[in-house]
Design a protein around this nucleic acid. Structure first.
Lengths: 255, 255
DNA sequence: GCGCTCTGGTCATAATATTTTACCAATCAA
DNA sequence: TTGATTGGTAAAATATTATGACCAGAGCGC
């Protein structure tokens, strides 16, 4: 049915959303103290009880903590890389997805450059091995493809010989693996995507094996640009499917 | 200040938005009768007075009209191309912008192809003349650049010798001229954009003058892809500027 | 150590938004 | 002409939010 139940957002929900965005964007930092309830409610234009409802919800999510007589603070644990509360925050806000891809493009381009320059023969052999498995015509599920994709990018990261970069990207990849940013199996499910992705991985592998840092960088950027475009296309397709479904329901006269 | 006044959306506003989207997406068509107030309020999960508030607002915008005893109808005038109510609807919904660009890319690629094949020597001379003005090093404002841009695309459309296409695109261009879809002067204000756009216009002109339909089509698609990307970039830059401003306000501790 | 100020925490009452319910007039189909 | 369904209007009830007051905890200055 094209008409859907309407629900206006509760006031406290709008407050939660605003504070979450300030935390997500790094404007409010871990450990930082917020203005007092009285000041905050004035700035937000809501009553103290409404603000307190929102603060209670944010406390429940692990993003804020308040102490009677002291104030309200952004949770310290958000400072540790990818605490559950932060991961949950990423998962619930779309803008994190494209920031993640943008950041990953930059870091992985650096890693590929370094791999082409600094990677040992063993490193390059590992990358070639993973790529050979990807290129193998053996039947695989989208999940297997996604797993090989992770192995491939991890192998390049290993070959960059920068442990800080390595561990940071590993934890981010863990989030990707758990579907926090987007469901990456979807991209492997389409034949045309898989073929294109394989070509891109081939270009990356060839550039690294040829020890061509510039080509490696270019290939990685092109690859992640493609992934981002595929995400945009997937979302547009999802949205179009919803609209088409609404039209169908309207045409069919179903409730 | 990073904290902003919170205002929850009125119930009737949410209903207005949903019905507007159904009209914008073509799900509800001009002249079509909506379900009765009683049925609609049940489907939307709101009371009849709240629904009536929304319907009154949509009537004021010229999108709906209701007749006591008969029902509520989507306004017939929406069927005529770009009635004021429809234009206003486009202006207030972002999704129309990218649909417009997508559609325009397709139509103008066709027009450029036809211009390369069917354009008379006079047609081509007009296009060349407009392009020469664009390429002239004489100082011009962004508004002048935008006006020349419109003349250039109109000249190509003229040269396509398809009056239906011509008039349809003319009215769409009128909307663009009036800033309905986006403020196109902004794109001409940056030096780098202007140079890139000039190169793209040169590629289009060269292809048409050489009577190369395929090259003309490719050049137009590349040009409008660039414009779309520039819009994305501009919006992202605007959003980043807002976030940076919030951070600055937070750092400076201003209210 | 005490007093003051500011903080979070709690709660009753008032104001506003929305829902519920009832009724009237217009339109259409039988 | 009549009955059913429609839009149109309005009073009363309910839910949400705001206002205002008060209490307990924390921190700072004397």
């Amino acid at each position: 049915m094209p008409f859907q139940k309407v629900q206006t957002e509760k006031l406290s929900t709008a407050v939660v959303r605003q504070i979450e965005e300030l935390i997500l964007r790094g404007i409010l930092r871990p450990g930082e103290r917020l203005p007092s309830e009285r000041e905050l409610s004035e700035r937000l234009g809501v009553s103290r009880p409404s603000l307190r409802d929102a603060v209670a919800e944010l406390q429940g999510k692990g993003l804020l903590c308040s102490r009677a007589g002291s104030g309200i603070f952004v949770a310290e644990v958000l400072g540790s890389a990818f605490s559950p509360a932060l991961v949950d925050l990423f998962a619930r806000h779309d803008e994190a997805v494209f920031d993640y891809l943008s950041f990953r493009r930059d870091i992985e381009a650096l890693a590929a450059e370094r791999a082409a320059r600094l990677g040992t023969e063993s490193d390059l052999a590992v990358i070639q091995t993973v790529f050979d498995r990807m290129a193998s015509p053996k039947r695989r599920s989208a999940q297997d493809d996604a797993e090989l994709d992770a192995q491939f990018h991890n192998a390049i990261m290993d070959a960059s010989h920068n442990v800080v970069m390595l561990h940071m990207m590993r934890s981010m990849f863990e989030l990707l693996r758990n579907g926090v940013f987007y469901n990456r199996q979807v991209i492997f499910e389409q034949r045309t995507s898989r073929d294109a992705l394989l070509d891109q991985h081939r270009a990356i592998n060839d550039a690294i094996q040829a020890r061509d840092p510039s080509a490696a960088r270019t290939a990685v950027v092109a690859h992640l640009d493609y992934v981002e475009q595929a995400l945009h296309d997937q979302r547009r397709a999802d949205r179009n499917a919803r609209i088409a479904q609404q039209r169908l329901q309207h045409e069919a006269g179903t409730a």
